[in-house]
Amino acid sequence: MTDKQNMIEVRGLHKAFGHKKVLTGVDLNVGVGESLVVIGGSGTGKSVLIKNILGLLKPDEGSIMINGEETVGMSAKERLRIMKKFGMLFQGGALFDSLKVWENIAFALIQSLRMPRMEAKDIAMEKLAMVGLDPEVGELEPAELSGGMQKRVGLARAIATQPEIIFFDEPTTGLDPIMGDVINDLIINCVRDLGATALSITHDMASARKIADRIAMIYEGKIIWVGPVADIDNSGNEYVDQFIHGKAEGPIKMAVRG
């Protein structure tokens, strides 16, 4: 991996909310075209990490380089340019419920790239087919879809503008194992087709093993282990072992009270 250029490079990232320190110095690299999965328990700062990289949250301290460009402290205009390289699949889908399914998928094409509606609709329908949904689904409202279908539409929306980097926030959470695996396959195919870099966060180990090239584990606001997916079972790290085997006993103590 060392000879490869990094698409995302995070150094010494700190983020606190009031007195609650969530990230306490995260260092992380994601190579071009690589799929990195960050695993970790609930409340360990996975979402906060991804939102800092996306620019939805402002880091207190540290550096985030996207394709060699520093994004911390960027102006709104430059941020908009970087944002166009990103696609994001949100945990709950985050589909706009005031718009039809196809309008959701075509959103960035119409609003940001100023594409004519009919042309954008054709692309939306193409993406809809890519995630395995019938064209009729395009005319439905998001509220009429099942959870799995909403995730698929969310994925179609994330890849509609052919982004260079795609973020996945808990892509399989809340789905049954079979639908979870369908989503995993779609993620692998979409990322490979686009040649995109992928950064995912999850606590679903089956999903992590399937979609990751490398896995990183976050604990108490720091990355405590990074390695190729093949090494995860003999990481030699007792925190990682406890997490991937899902044991209550071990060095990680679950905070019963938040």
């Binding site: 939805l56 696609g87 994001m88 709950g92 985050a94 589909l95 706009f96 959103f107 940001s112 929306r157």
Partner: peptide
């Protein structure tokens, strides 16, 4: 209510990631 629901369901974050 509408904008609040969009906030808690991450639709506002989604707007930002779609460059809007």
């Amino acid at each position: 209510a509408e904008i609040g629901t969009m906030r808690v369901t991450e639709q506002i974050d989604a707007l930002v990631t779609l460059s809007t």
